[in-house]
Design a protein around this nucleic acid. Structure first.
Length: 306
DNA sequence: TCTCCTCGAGATCT
DNA sequence: CTCGAGGAGA
């Protein structure tokens, strides 16, 4: 719904501007900006910065003051957004902007820019969360604070706009340094847009280091999964099956021996609690195929020797 | 069967 | 965004 909004891109620009805002809440429709900050970077190094508090039209919620440390007194003599947004936009120019979950900031800026100047914020943007998802998959949470801690970067003073810009640039540079093949890294993000790059069961190959036990209940059996697993990503479960000498089927077919039921609560298009894979499996079972529908827990018991 | 589109929860931002 | 679904159409 936001015309001419910039694109979220995966890129490695020499020059960019890190931005961050603090607001009175999460909704760009109902909440207001109370702090704006930006750091212009060349070759990864800060060269110039912009910072200002902004006076909102209504008092700041205590929760936000607790979170950011910004209170009504601090913004009492700060300029209003209509007096500083132009300066902020001029500072940013047409740079690529970088931020942690930056669509949040971009949407706020876009909406207020439309409201005040009837002009869209069209800068392309780089979201550091996307980098963290791919480069730090083992990290349970990808919040700015968690990623900083992972890199042993002190988060003292965080949740203020300028400090968060600094922190974001630090983790951005650390993550960039982890990437040795940029083309391959970019390909990781094309997976879902390009079906040819999306992983399928055929991509899961047995790890030759693992010697399958021929007596295990998994050995020689064909598995299919439906729903989201609780204990591990589906891809990991598929890998274990293959390592243990089992096989995989992309969909339920007459070759499938086990359909593993994950959680499907999130999917509202499922009316009667059963996915199409489960219905198909039950149909084959009635027709005499060697197929069992098992819960996630039963699956974990089957692979407990792994 | 395969491709393309839509839907939805959860994460993340304050 | 990410990554599970379902469904239409070739």
């Amino acid at each position: 719904m936001r015309d001419n909004k910039g694109k979220s891109i995966i890129a490695f620009p020499d020059n960019y501007t890190v931005i961050d805002i603090e607001t009175t809440g999460l909704s760009s429709e109902w909440n207001e900006i109370i702090e704006l900050a930006a750091i212009k970077c060349c070759n990864g190094n800060p060269v110039n910065n912009f910072h200002t508090l902004v006076k909102p039209s209504r008092p700041i919620d205590p929760f936000i003051t607790e979170l950011t440390g910004i209170n009504d007194e601090m913004v009492e003599h700060a300029p209003r957004i209509d007096n500083v947004l132009g300066d902020f936009l001029s500072f940013v120019g047409d740079d690529i902007v970088v931020g942690h979950n930056i669509s949040f900031d971009v949407n706020f800026i876009y909406d207020i820019s439309i409201k005040l100047f009837n002009r869209p914020f069209s800068n392309d943007h780089i979201n550091t969360v996307r980098f963290a998802n791919k480069l730090l998959p083992e990290l349970p949470h990808k919040t700015l604070n968690c990623v900083c801690k992972h890199f042993s970067i002190s988060t003292h003073g965080s949740h203020r706009a300028l400090k968060d810009c600094e922190l974001t640039n630090s983790i951005f540079q650390r993550m960039l340094s982890m990437i040795d093949d940029r083309d391959a890294f970019c390909d990781l993000f094309k997976k879902w847009k390009n079906p040819n790059l999306r992983w399928t069961t055929k991509d899961i190959l047995a790890n030759p280091d693992y010697k399958p036990d021929e007596d295990s209940p998994v050995y020689g059996k064909a598995f299919c999964f439906t729903g989201k697993l609780d204990q591990m990503p589906r891809k990991e479960a598929c890998q274990i099956v293959v390592n243990m000498g089992g096989k995989l089927t992309e969909t339920v077919s007459k070759k499938t021996n086990y359909l593993v039921l994950g959680c499907t609560d999130y999917c509202k298009t499922i009316k009667d609690g059963k996915t199409s894979k489960q219905k198909k499996a039950e149909k084959y079972q009635r027709e005499g195929s060697d197929i069992s529908v098992i819960t996630e827990d039963v699956f974990y018991q089957m692979i407990e020797d792994y």
